[in-house]
């Protein structure tokens, strides 16, 4: 990997990678209005590994969708990597995501008819890279998650943990600033979960990626720099060293 940190470098050190200012998201469900998020403000520095925890229905996925430009807030501002996401259209957001965000879902992340290598290459199809460069970069990403030997296997030939690692390789292949994972270990056994968490931590430590992950797994606390607690759409508090979330990435705790 050759981390392209230009975006980070251009930004003043004091400015976090992610800033939410008084963000609310509500849904109209018939005559009712569901408040999925209410007046959430937070900041996450570049290179931090953050966890988002809270009971089911507390608005974790909603928050992740706002951070990753999949959804837009009903009120408030979402800033990521110097960009105000509120202003972007659905199509502009899609393009922005392809450049700046790597996404990992709970399971079934991969296209079953494509090999691991081809799955990892998918985001690169949206870039101007030629075929050789795409192949090279995908191979590198697979090496990062230690799956180079399985490049030609299709998802059904891989274990759940291996599939999640392929998904991680796909999330980092286009060298995004931000990696977003919604319960990435939810369907994994303890050992595979630890492998996935270790990779995500290494991405933040060694490649200075910002990783935001939703998790229910209490063991995840060991791996992350900071935990945000959500309940009923409200940000209850931040666990871990708050200074840590604001400090340079490499000074984190274990």
């Amino acid at each position: 990997m050759s981390p392209c940190r230009e975006q980070t470098r251009r930004r003043p050190v004091a400015e976090p990678l992610i800033t939410l200012r008084d963000v609310s998201r509500w849904y109209r469900r018939g005559v009712d209005v569901v408040h999925a998020l209410e007046h959430v403000s937070l900041a996450i520095e570049g290179g931090v590994f953050a966890a988002l925890m809270g009971p089911s229905g507390s608005g974790k996925s909603t928050l992740l969708n706002l951070l990753s430009g999949i959804d837009r807030p009903s009120a408030g501002e979402v800033w990521v990597a110097g960009r105000r996401l509120n202003d972007l259209s659905e199509d502009e957001l899609a393009h922005w995501r392809s450049r700046h965000v790597g996404l990992i879902f709970q399971s079934y992340n991969l296209i079953p008819v494509l090999s691991a290598q081809e799955n990892v290459e998918l985001p690169l199809l949206l870039t101007a890279f030629g075929r050789g460069e795409r192949t090279r970069r995908a191979a590198t990403a697979l090496r990062v998650v230690d799956l180079a030997p399985r490049a030609r296997h299709v998802p059904s030939e891989l274990s759940g943990g291996e599939q999640q690692r392929v998904a991680i390789a796909r999330a980092i292949v286009a060298d995004p600033d931000l990696i977003i994972a919604d319960e990435p270990t939810g369907d994994l056994d303890a050992r595979s979960a630890d492998e996935v968490l270790a990779i995500l931590r290494d991405l933040s430590r060694e490649l200075a990626k910002t990783v935001v992950m939703v998790t229910h797994d209490p063991r995840a606390r060991r791996w992350v720099d900071v935990v945000f607690h959500l309940d009923k759409g409200v940000l209850l508090g931040t666990e871990g060293n708050d200074a840590l979330a604001r400090a340079p990435a490499h000074g984190g705790v274990t």
Binding site: A94, R97, V101, N109, L122
Partner: peptide
Amino acid sequence: AREIAILRAIGFGRRL
């Protein structure tokens, strides 16, 4: 549907 949703999430535009 699931695959299409994932492709769209990772940045495949509507037109594509």
